Amino acid sequence: MQFKLLAAAICATLPLVASAQSSVTIYGVLDAAVAYEDNGAPNGSRTVLNSGNQSSSRFGFKGAEDIGSGLKAIFNLEGGVAIDTGMGDSALFGRRAVVGLQGSFGSVTLGREYTPIADVAKESDIFGQGFYGTNLSAFGTGRLTRRISNSVNYKSVPMSGLRVGAAYGAGEALTGPSLDIMGISADYTIGKFYVGAGYHTVERLASGDDKEMIVGAGYKMGPVSIKGNYMVADLTGANNKYEQVNLGASMSSGASTFYANYQQQKLEAGGAKGNTLAVAYSYAFSKRTNAYATYARLSNNATARFGINSSSTSLTPPPANLGADPSNLSIGVRHSF
């Protein structure tokens, strides 16, 4: 009888031993907003319910296991979900899917990961890549690359405030251009000052590589933060350069935070130019729940058809409406777990 009780006690402690060696966290963000949007075209306005205006709604799993000798095995699976419809992204874990090792050298991961430029873009955006008017409008077809599949990634630990990163994504093409992407980044944080830069090359065509780059900075003075960046996507060929500039500020007072950002987009072909002014307000009920309101308006010149982006949604004039000026007013709530 005593042997059976001892055996049962040992078995009961095994899960505790395992949990001390490894950990898995389930997390997510749920964000929904009522929005009045106008794409700038005749009869182009409507009222909608959007998902992910401040933060993309998501769910994920991440974990680490201590495997000895100062090493940890790490993983992260993250997928998007639309709160307005309940639908998931077309790829189950399209936001992030990596596994790798972490140690005193930093971390090495394999899978689908954020690019080196994406890390700098997030750190230097006053909206944190949320709210309409964010710098996410610099990413997408023919512009900068935010995520890469089939990738090998390295991120160093901070060394006196300096961090470096590198990534290689295999295009895995059997014929023609390889579609490979290579990127590097470096950023430096000292006190309340941040500065970072990143660079990518993409072998999209048989001759010449597409080039992408970013420089960004930020500074915090008590309740006030200032952030800005300059981004370029220079595709192979003449007159294909896309440029974006952002300059923003925020101020916190108790549970309230006020934001403002100015953004300019330019396309070399045709001299297209668009200027966006965006403001936002957030009230934090707790560390995990806040309500927000945001307004953004983009003014395009006669040859431009730029759009505005939030974390998961975008608003762009129809192809036939060059010079149209899109705008968005959103009121929403966000909860993280």
Rank of each mutant, 00 (worst) to 15 (best):
Q244C: 00
S19E: 01
T313C: 14
R305I: 00
N300D: 01
I83W: 05
D210Q: 04
G307W: 03
G133D: 09
G79N: 00
Q129N: 15
K211S: 10
Q265W: 07
C11L: 10
A284M: 09
S311D: 14
T316M: 07
V24W: 04
G271D: 08
P223Q: 12
S311R: 04
H200Y: 05
G28P: 03
E172D: 14
A320T: 01
V152Y: 11
D187S: 01
L298D: 05
T289I: 03
K227D: 00
Y132C: 02
F258L: 14
A8F: 06
G208L: 02
D187N: 07
S225A: 10
S160Q: 14
A296P: 02
S207D: 07
I83D: 04
T257V: 02
F61C: 10
T313S: 09
H200S: 09
F127Q: 14
S252Y: 04
L6E: 08
Y292E: 05
P42N: 13
M213Q: 14
M221D: 13
S160T: 03
I126F: 11
R204N: 14
K220D: 05
P317A: 10
Y132N: 06
E113Y: 05
Q244D: 10
N229D: 12
P15Y: 13
R143T: 03
L6N: 13
S327Q: 06
P223M: 04
A255N: 12
R204S: 08
F93C: 01
I117C: 08
A8M: 14
Y281M: 04
A167Y: 14
R297P: 01
Q129P: 09
G323E: 08
K266L: 10
K241H: 01
Y242K: 10
G142L: 09
T201N: 09
M87A: 15
A291G: 03
S225H: 03
P223L: 01
Y230F: 06
S90D: 13
K72R: 15
T109F: 02
V24K: 00
M87C: 11
I308P: 01
N290C: 09
R143I: 07
K211G: 12
N300Q: 05
G183L: 04
P317V: 03
E123P: 07
G79V: 06
R147A: 03
I67P: 00
S250E: 12
Y194N: 00
P318I: 13
L5M: 11
A82H: 11
S156V: 11
G94E: 03
A8W: 04
S225V: 05
M251Q: 15
K192L: 15
N76G: 00
Q265T: 02
S57E: 00
L92D: 12
K227R: 06
Q265H: 01
T276L: 14
N135Q: 11
T141Y: 08
T175M: 06
T257G: 07
